[in-house]
Design a protein around this nucleic acid. Structure first.
Length: 371
DNA sequence: TCTGGGGTCCTAGGACCC
DNA sequence: TCTGGGGTCCTAGGACCC
């Protein structure tokens, strides 16, 4: 375990919107929102200046920013650009964790010596290359662990570099609202605020025993987070796919099961396609159902064998779906396959048995619920 | 605030095994 | 036999992130 690490977080600024502005020059300098029909998935800094935020309804966004240009999102395109950018990272270290489509952690503890022992040189070089090749601004946070590197990049935005040294962390955290830390969302913020805890300083001084009682193991973690401590490692470069899924909000909602099954089938096919494309197979099928009142729940079942095709997924998903109530109008349906492993010849040998076992599993579901 | 879609991780209880 | 404890897997739900 290394003690004094140097962790860098590269974070693309307004990534989706920047990709669009790069591709379509007439969008540059304008307030742009990328998203679906009803919600803003991401927006340009010009739009942010008006108060537009991701997650906001498109209606509201246009209300506060009438000149907003809304473009449909194209995840494939962004993922491609992302992969191209990420290809540059091994030039700086072999310890890379691709954290999301627009963020990556780099542990440069062992390689910073090649950059005059100054991590700023790495940050500058990386930012320049991304800007030059892709026309996209990136912000870089540098610190002694991932938690603080993340905070640093937040403070660096937009288009900047920020380093948080261990000696400065305590001062910085003292008056920092707890929700600025990655890992503390709206829900936790509310609960902490209710305890009279608003800043990280206050959280750090709050009795650990009470935090543990209230939040379990996470309470202990919160205590350390508030002090700027995070022992998690920058993990391997290849993100392990634990699950793959699709979900769909149905405009107007669905009332009858037949229509729902048609949606379900399509989702299963999409999941199957995605899974096969990545050369994976999985054994746990989950469905998500959201009723009109936003009550959301999941049902899942783990098989004793692996599957990959839309048809196989559908048979299981349908079984799960048929057990659920149909009293309410369905707003969203989702299907996902988890327990994923790389498809291998050994596992594939069992393929012949699959048909039989599949039927057995479906029977088991049906029997279990006595239908 | 009236709410998309893709994920990850954690927890708790129960089943089951040794 | 009615009685321990640990480990692991499964299901369901929830918080969080981008």
């Amino acid at each position: 375990m290394k003690k004094n690490r140097i962790v860098v977080l590269v974070d693309m600024d307004a990534f989706f919107a920047s990709c669009e502005q790069q591709e379509k020059p007439f969008l540059r300098g304008k307030p742009v929102a990328v998203g679906g029909k009803n919600i803003v998935a991401a927006c340009s800094y010009e739009a942010k200046a008006y108060g537009v935020k991701s997650g906001m309804s498109t209606y509201k966004a246009i209300e506060i920013c009438p000149s907003l240009i809304v473009v449909p999102g194209d995840m494939e395109k962004y993922a491609f650009t992302s992969r191209e950018i990420m290809k540059m990272l091994p030039d700086y270290t072999s310890e890379i964790e691709i954290f999301s489509v627009d963020e990556a952690f780099l542990d440069v503890t062992d390689t910073v010596k090649f950059w005059d022992n100054n991590p700023f040189n790495i940050a500058k070089d990386l930012r320049e290359r991304i800007k030059r090749r892709f026309g996209i601004n990136a912000s870089v946070g540098i610190s002694y662990n991932k938690l603080m590197a993340k905070l640093a990049s937040f403070l660096a935005k937009p288009d900047g570099i920020k380093m948080i040294k261990r000696d400065d962390a305590r001062n910085l955290l003292e008056n920092l609202p707890v929700e600025k830390l990655s890992g503390i969302g709206q829900r936790l913020k509310k609960e902490l605020n209710a305890l009279g805890i608003v800043t990280c300083g206050e959280l750090a001084r709050f009795p650990v025993t009470i935090l543990k009682k209230l939040f379990g193991q996470y309470g202990l973690l919160l205590h350390y987070m508030a002090m700027g401590e995070d022992s998690s490692a920058v993990k391997e470069a290849v993100p392990k796919n634990r699950s793959m899924g699709h979900s769909k909000t149905i405009p107007g909602g669905i009332e009858d099961k037949h229509t729902a099954l048609i949606y379900l089938f399509r989702l299963c096919e999409m999941v199957g396609r995605k899974v096969r494309k990545s050369g994976m197979i999985g054994k746990t099928v989950s469905i998500t159902i959201r009723y009109e009142d936003f009550f959301t729940f999941t049902r899942q079942i783990t098989l004793s064998y692996y599957i990959e095709s839309g048809e196989e997924i559908y048979e299981i998903a349908k079984g799960l779906f048929m057990q659920t109530d149909t009293l309410y109008r369905i707003r969203l349906l989702g299907v996902s396959l988890s327990g994923l492993v790389k498809a291998s010849r050994q596992i594939r040998l069992k393929e012949d048995e699959r048909g039989i076992r599949l039927r057995r599993a479906v029977d088991a579901i049906n029997n279990r619920y006595d239908r």
